[in-house]
Amino acid sequence: MVAESLLTNEVRALIGQATAPVPVRLTSRMVERTMDVYLGGRPRRFAPGEAVPGFVLVALEAEAEPLDVPQLLPDGLMISNEMTFERPLCLGEELTVQWRVGEIRERFGGQFGYSVFVPTEVLVRDVTGAVVARTSRTMMYYDASDVPGEGGER
């Protein structure tokens, strides 16, 4: 049972840290693969410049370089996630993706015992540098040997 904070200065220093933006082009292959994941079957084709389904963010965020955030506790659940769009993304767009750490928090004595919450996000910017989309998720880390687990997704 953890009785003291595991949020060391080293861990706290990660809050707000971001990796360098990675250039990425929104390709037909990304769109077709994610449409296959979410819709199944033969995906429809899009013309260059045409708006594409937002779940292509799954493929875009995979291009971002993540930071190495230490896993302080052995078990993890994804408790929430979201996708946000300022406008639809379009086929062929030149974009950048950047991975960032949010406010790391901890909780003592909750349903899962001591737990650490690590929010991260991936920012998608267009060629002007404007954020056009973002995806974020919060992971909760805990020790299942302290509290038999139930709850969200890994």
């Binding site: 979410y38 779940f55 979201e82 299942a144 997704e153």
Partner: peptide, 22 residues
């Protein structure tokens, strides 16, 4: 990990929410 079987990833479920609305 105490689960009855392999899990459906959370981001996949988020995508189903997106798909239903779209």
């Amino acid at each position: 990990q105490g689960m009855p079987g392999t899990l459906i990833p959370g981001p996949l479920k988020l995508g189903f929410l997106y798909r239903a609305v779209e």
